[in-house]
């Protein structure tokens, strides 16, 4: 088990009126759970809180989480990640899926 807390600058997220959180994925082998919640105290940053069952990949996590903060407007949120050995290719997808639930629908 390894834990990791870090904040990155990000443009503020416009919260939809009808949602106060978003969840994607599950805690299961080779998968991870991503939970996005409001964090009004820091509107220009995203606060990540990660628990992973596989230690030793802090640099990769940092790069993926920093990119996500830079690409998308997720300021003013706390994002909690519970990882159980998700393949690297799953991580950005789960982040995008959770954010997608807070943004207007696309096909």
């Amino acid at each position: 088990m390894e834990t990791f807390q870090h904040s990155f600058p990000s443009r503020p997220l416009a919260w939809p009126a009808d949602r106060s959180w978003a969840l994607a994925g599950v805690v299961g082998s080779g998968n991870l759970e991503v939970l996005i919640e409001p964090n009004p105290a820091a509107p220009d940053a995203v606060a990540y809180d990660l628990q992973t069952s596989i230690p030793g990949y802090a640099d990769s996590w940092k790069a993926a989480l920093a990119d996500f903060a830079a690409h998308y407007a997720v300021g003013g949120t706390r994002i909690t990640l519970h990882d159980q050995g998700a393949a690297p290719v799953v991580i950005t997808m789960r982040l995008r899926q959770a954010l997608d639930l807070l943004t207007p629908a696309q096909p």
Binding site: A24, A70, M93, R96, Q97, D100, L101, A105, Q106, P107
Partner: peptide
């Protein structure tokens, strides 16, 4: 990891690199 954010942004602006939201794809439906 060796990419530059500036290069990626420029390629995205020209449509050479496209992310799900540029394609009108909703990741939540995957």
């Amino acid at each position: 990891l060796k990419r530059s954010l500036a290069d990626t942004a420029a390629l995205r602006a020209r449509g050479i690199v496209r992310l799900p939201e540029d394609l009108g794809v909703s990741p939540a439906r995957a």
